[in-house]
Nucleic acid binder design. Structure first.
Lengths: 344, 344
DNA sequence: GTGAAAGCGCTAACAG
DNA sequence: CTGTTAGCGCTTTCAC
C-alpha cells in the first residue's frame, strides 16, 4: 500500500556546478547566462543552454535568495475581505513572489488590532517583514497606514482611492467602471435606474456613485434623488433597498447595486415581489464575486483583475519606490443574465 | 510625499554569529538552543536566550533551508474549487509552509489538463515540485492521482473518500457530519426532511446522503424515496429540486441540501413560492461557504476546518510517509437562521 | 556539553 | 567576455 513515492526528500536536482562542468565553463558563466544573457558570447551561451536543457537544470531559488541577499518577506494584511477576494489576491501575490524569490506571509488583523495601529505596526516590524500589501477595506484606514509608515514598513495599498498617506497603490478606475455599467444600462433603454450605495465609512461606494451620476448627466437624464438609496454592502440591505425602490410611484426598470452581495439581495427581493429578472427588472452588481456566477440568474457585474492587482502590488514593493506611485489596471464589464432591455 | 519608507531593501537583521558573540558561545550552541534545546546545559541555554531576546534575533529561514537541505517546494493543485474554499486552503497551507520552511506553489489545472494525467504529472515533475497537495474535486480523480504517483510525486489528497490509490489524505468525516445535521433536524421535530443530492460523478454527495439515511434509520423513520431528489451542486439545481419537493402531496418541512450553493437555491425557490424560511420551511446546507453567511436568512450548515486541513496536509507531506496515512479532523455544525422547529 | 571546520547553491566583487 | 575568490546565514559532521 505504500511505495517510495510517499517519502518526501528533496530529490537532488542538478546544480550550477554540474551544468558548468558539462558545458566546460565556470559556474559564473552559467549564472550569467541565466541572469544577464546579453553579456555572454553567443556561442558560449548556446553551449550552456544546451547543458541546462540536457540536465533539466533549474535554479535553486533558496540559494539564489541567500546569495543575492534580496529575499523579501512580504506580508499580506487584511481584516474582513471576502474569502473569495482573498483567495484571488493570494494567488496573484504568490505567483509574483515566486518569480521574484520572495516569501509571502499572511497576516490577518483582528478588529481589535485595527483599533491600535501603533501596536500592529510594531508587531509587524518585529516580525521581520520587509514590506506589506494591504487589502481593502484595511487599505482605507489612514491611521493604520500612517503607523506602518512611521514604523518604517514599505506598503502598497490595494485601494481605489488616493488616501493622502502617500503610500503607493494599485487599483482599477472604479469611477470609470461604474460609469461604464450605467452607460450600458442607459444604452439598453433604461431610463429609471436605481442605485444602491454602500456604507459611508468606505470610499468605494461614493466613487462608484460618482460614475453612476456622471453617466446619467452625460446622457442628459434628470437627477432623481429618490432613485438613490443607501445600502450597507450586505445582501440584506440590498433586499431592503429594493423594497423601497419598488414601492416608488414610478419604480425603476433597472437597479445598479454598488456591490454583488447587495445585487444578489436585489434579485431575491425582486423574486419575492413576483418580478422576473431580467424581464421585469434588470440588476447589475460590482466586484464579480463568486456569488455573481452562482446565483440565478447570474449577475452582470464589474470584474476587477484581483490576482493581477496583487501581482502588481508585489512588483511595486520590489521596486525602488521612485519609479511608480500607482498602477491602474483595466476592469471588465461582465455581461451575464441579469440585465436586458426594459419591457416596452 | 515620499520618504525612505518606500524603498524595500532587507534591513539587516541580527545573525546567529552576533547572538553567539553576545552570549559568549559558539554559533553552534545558539543553533542548538534553537533546534534542540534539551541537549544544551540550562545555564548556557538561558544566556543564549537572553541574547536572542536583546537582539530581537530571528532565524533566517532562507539560510536555514539552504543549509538544512530540506526546503520543499510544495504544489497546490486544484481544478474548479470555489475561490472561497481555495482562499482558506491557501491560508492554511501558507502558515504551515512558513513554519516548516517550505514554499508553496499554486498550480491551477485546466479542464484540458485533467484529460491528460500523464502530461500533467510530467509537467509537475519537471517543475521541480517535491510534493503536492490535491484539492477536491481533483482529489477524487483516480487516474490523475495514479499518474502523479507513477511520476514519483508524493501527494496528499484533501478528500472525504478513500479512493483506493493509497495516497495519504486529510478530511472530515462527512458521513458523520450529514448524520449530525439530519439528527438536529429530527430533534427539532421535523418528520419529513427532503434531501438534495449532488452530481454522481463525485463521491461526496453519496457519502453525505448515507449520513442522512442513517440518521433517519436510527430515528425509526420510514424511507421515503420521493424526498430524495438529485441535484448538481449548483444554485439553479437547488431551486429546481425545491420546486419538485414542494409540489409533493405532502411536502417536506425541512430540506437538507448536500452543499451550500444548492441550499441557497432552496431558499430562493421557497421565497418565490411565498414560503417563509425558517417558519414554513427549514433549510440546511453543507460546507459553510461565504454564501452561507451572506444570504438572508443566513444558512445553518456544516463547517469544515479548511485552513487546518491544508496545514495538516502540508505537515503530512513533510513526514516520512510511514507514520500517518490519513488525518480526520472535526467538523462543526454551524447554527444560523435558516432552521427552526416545524410549524405545528 | 560544546566548538571548529566545511559546505548547502548561488551571486557579488574583482581580476584578467 | 570569462574566471577566481569570497561569502550570504545556517546546519552538518566530527572533534574535544
Amino acid at each position: 500500500m505504500r511505495n517510495d513515492t510517499d517519502t518526501l526528500t528533496r530529490r537532488s536536482q542538478p546544480t550550477l556546478k554540474e551544468v558548468a562542468e558539462r558545458a566546460g565553463v565556470s559556474q559564473m558563466t552559467v549564472s550569467r547566462v541565466l541572469n544577464s544573457p546579453d553579456i555572454v558570447r553567443q556561442e558560449t551561451r548556446e553551449r550552456v543552454r544546451a547543458a541546462i536543457t540536457e540536465l533539466n537544470y533549474r535554479p535553486n531559488l533558496v540559494a539564489r535568495s541567500l546569495a543575492g541577499g534580496r529575499s523579501l518577506f512580504i506580508g499580506l494584511t487584511y481584516n474582513n475581505p471576502s474569502s473569495g477576494y482573498l483567495g484571488e489576491l493570494l494567488i496573484g501575490a504568490l505567483k509574483s513572489c515566486r518569480s521574484g524569490g520572495h516569501h509571502l506571509v499572511v497576516e490577518e488583523l483582528s478588529d481589535g488590532d485595527v483599533e491600535e495601529p501603533e501596536r500592529v505596526a510594531e508587531r509587524l516590524r518585529e516580525g521581520g517583514l520587509d514590506g506589506l500589501l494591504v487589502a481593502p477595506p484595511l487599505s482605507e484606514n489612514a491611521p493604520l497606514i500612517e503607523a506602518l509608515r512611521a514604523a518604517g514598513i514599505p506598503c502598497v495599498l490595494i485601494t481605489p482611492a488616493e488616501t493622502g498617506t502617500g503610500a503607493r497603490r494599485v487599483a482599477i478606475d472604479e469611477e470609470a467602471a461604474a460609469h461604464a455599467m450605467t452607460g450600458q444600462l442607459l444604452r439598453l433603454g433604461h431610463e429609471r435606474i436605481g442605485f444602491v450605495s454602500g456604507p459611508d465609512t468606505q470610499l468605494a461606494p461614493d466613487i462608484r456613485m460618482q460614475g453612476y451620476e456622471r453617466a446619467l448627466r452625460e446622457a442628459g437624464q434628470p437627477f432623481r434623488s429618490e432613485l438613490i438609496v443607501p445600502g450597507a454592502f450586505t445582501y440584506r440591505s440590498g433586499m431592503e433597498a429594493t423594497e423601497r425602490l419598488l414601492a416608488l410611484e414610478e419604480p425603476p426598470t433597472a437597479i445598479f447595486a454598488a456591490n454583488d452581495d447587495m445585487a444578489a439581495g436585489v434579485i431575491a427581493a425582486a423574486h419575492r415581489a413576483a418580478l422576473r429578472v431580467p424581464e421585469d427588472l434588470s440588476v447589475a452588481g460590482f466586484d464579480d464575486t463568486e456569488m455573481a456566477r452562482t446565483i440565478w440568474p447570474s449577475l452582470t457585474t464589474i470584474r476587477q483583475p484581483i490576482a493581477d492587482m496583487a501581482a502588481c502590488a508585489v512588483d511595486l514593493l520590489g521596486e525602488d519606490g521612485q519609479e511608480r506611485r500607482a498602477i491602474v489596471l483595466d476592469f471588465e464589464l461582465v455581461e451575464r443574465d441579469s440585465v436586458a432591455p426594459p419591457a416596452s
